[in-house]
């Protein structure tokens, strides 16, 4: 019976871990998207310096959690976000409104899809 309890405990631990990880990724991407949306609003008002600062915060937050992100997700997907963030920052530096808006929208969509992929849903299971 000890083995049965141990096995059930491991399965429960794995289930809890997977739910926590999905929740954490969801929270992180949601907060990043909110901040990126704010940055876009600032850029649209012509406040480029503040938009750059907000985007820099998002990039820093992402970088700070890179270890966990690489451990939890496929490395290609994490790399893509890093590259997209870099592109967005470049357009912000150049203050190219059209290209920045397109790149930022693509980045927000990438973040949404990443969270969606980790979400414990029937859609993902199937």
């Amino acid at each position: 019976m000890k083995r049965l309890y141990l096995a059930v405990l491991i399965l429960a631990g794995l289930l809890a871990g997977s739910l926590l990880s999905a929740g954490w990724v969801g929270e992180l991407t949601d907060s990043c998207r909110t901040r990126l949306f704010e940055a876009q609003a600032l850029a649209e008002r012509g406040e480029w310096a503040q938009a750059r600062a907000v985007t820099q915060e998002v990039a820093q937050a992402w970088e700070d959690r890179e270890f966990a992100l690489y451990a939890l997700m496929h490395h290609d997907e994490v790399d893509e976000i890093v590259l997209s963030l870099e592109t967005v920052r470049e357009y912000l530096e150049a203050e190219e409104a059209g290209r920045y808006a397109a790149a930022n929208a693509a980045l927000m969509e990438q973040l949404r899809l990443l969270a969606e992929m980790e979400r414990p849903s029937l859609e993902n299971v199937l």
């Binding site: 019976m1 083995r3 049965l4 096995a7 059930v8 491991i10 399965l11 794995l14």
Partner: peptide, 12 residues
Amino acid sequence: LALLSMTMILSV
């Protein structure tokens, strides 16, 4: 780990 745990459950 999941497979080994399920195997242990099944064996019991």
